[in-house]
């Protein structure tokens, strides 16, 4: 597999994906492939994407994130997004964007609780 876009952490059956880089279109697309490969290779049943370091999520980035969640779902895997910054949440809401197939959580702990409960 090609080099990873972001380093990920395997925690229980979950894959933790902390995004700590600027998400340009190319990066977010490569991230999608990376996540899908890691689900496949590591027998993951939940993905937690931490976006607390991401300042801007525009329509395309949110679309690719939703799309990734949909693909993960097809592989039997739930996707939880945590740490959305309040101003990013307001911006997404004002644009009318819905994060399809994604569960949002207040924190990493909350994300794990939500995934625990889903099984």
């Amino acid at each position: 597999m090609k080099s990873k876009v972001v380093p990920t952490i395997k925690l229980y059956d979950y894959l933790l994906v902390p995004i700590q880089i600027e998400l340009d279109d190319n990066t977010v697309e490569r991230l999608q492939m990376q996540i899908l490969h890691e689900i496949h290779e590591n027998d993951v049943r939940g993905i937690i994407i931490d976006v607390s370091m991401v300042d801007v999520i525009d329509s395309y980035i949110s679309f690719v994130l939703s799309e990734t969640a949909g693909m993960a779902k097809a592989m039997g895997c739930h996707t939880v997004l945590c740490g959305i910054q309040p101003q990013v949440a307001l911006t997404l809401a004002q644009m009318g964007i819905r994060l399809k197939d994604i569960i949002t959580a207040r924190s990493l702990e909350d994300a794990i609780d939500i995934l625990d409960e889903l099984e």
Partner: peptide, 12 residues
């Protein structure tokens, strides 16, 4: 309504 949706995005 936007505010409610934004709060939901925070997971609350």
């Amino acid at each position: 309504i936007e505010m409610f949706n934004a709060i939901k995005l925070l997971g609350s």
